[in-house]
């Protein structure tokens, strides 16, 4: 019994310590953002890595999500003759929830893993020490560009995911299932409010921050060679995905 509490206690302490360190890194990153000069070249390179290179996965994910949403809501809505509302359901679910959350998960798997692995390798091969030795702050040089790239690129990816998801839903319900095209488009537009879009985009920004902060933290705290890099990468993906899902609920509850 004592051992159990011992274990539980150490788990809680580790959790709090870790959260504290991540928060500290987050605050330091924010402070370094506002200290000139801003390394535009690095930011653009990271934007390409985080954004442009994520477009294919995000596109495939969102078109199939939109399609399956249309298919499933058609099955359900036909039972009470409400097929006309498929467009509304697809659009609202994509824009409010699935667009940001699924893009967040995809990006954390693709980009978060890459960030943690790259920074982790730099850590274990002393490249981060070398930055310090060259009188350059690694947070400024490595984390700030990744942070800004994720923050600005995530909303763009989500807008793309929303549009493609809605098109996917349209294709399935109009072309495959033969519902009326005009009604689909009208119902999509009529029930969509600006608020739906900007809560989705706000989520996207927050998810971008989560992915960059956690992945960079894991990279920087890597210890012990190739094995350490592997572990850091796994932790970056698992932790950022979980926190995305958890914070998603709380953001939704706050915006309710």
């Amino acid at each position: 019994m004592v051992k159990f509490f011992d274990f539980l206690g150490s788990l809680v302490i580790r959790f709090i310590e870790e959260s504290g360190r991540i928060m500290l890194l987050f605050i330091k990153t924010l402070m370094w953002i506002f200290r000139p000069p801003l390394n535009l070249k690095n930011i653009v390179r990271q934007m390409e890595e985080v954004g442009v290179n994520s477009i294919p996965v995000v596109l495939i994910m969102s078109i199939f999500t939109g399609m399956v949403l249309a298919l499933q809501s058609y099955t359900a809505f036909r039972r009470f003759n409400a097929e006309a509302f498929i467009g509304t359901v697809v659009a609202l679910s994509m824009v409010r929830e699935l667009g940001p959350v699924l893009s967040g998960l995809m990006v954390s798997g693709r980009v978060g893993a890459a960030m943690a692995a790259e920074l982790g390798t730099m850590q274990v091969t002393e490249q981060i020490d070398a930055l310090y030795a060259l009188a350059t702050n690694p947070i400024k040089f490595l984390i700030v560009p990744r942070f800004l790239a994720a923050l600005f690129v995530m909303p763009v990816l989500v807008i793309l995911a929303d549009i493609i998801g809605i098109i996917g839903g349209y294709l399935v319900s109009v072309i495959l299932l033969g519902t009326n095209s005009t009604i689909y488009i009208k119902r999509t537009w009529d029930y969509m409010e600006l608020e739906d879009i900007y809560t989705g985009l706000l989520k996207a920004c927050i998810f971008g921050i989560i992915i960059a902060t956690i992945s960079c933290y894991q990279g920087f705290s890597t210890r012990g060679g190739a094995e350490g890099v592997g572990k850091a990468t796994t932790r970056a993906v698992v932790l950022s995905s979980l926190i995305i899902l958890i914070s998603n609920y709380f953001i939704a509850a706050l915006m309710f």
Partner: peptide, 24 residues
């Protein structure tokens, strides 16, 4: 602190054991 250390570090050059070249 970090800022003052950075000034001091400009006096230094360091050769790391495995080079620690930036591989990007």
């Amino acid at each position: 602190n970090e800022a003052k250390l950075n000034e001091i570090r400009k006096k230094f050059g360091m050769l790391f054991q495995f080079g620690a070249l930036f591989d990007s």
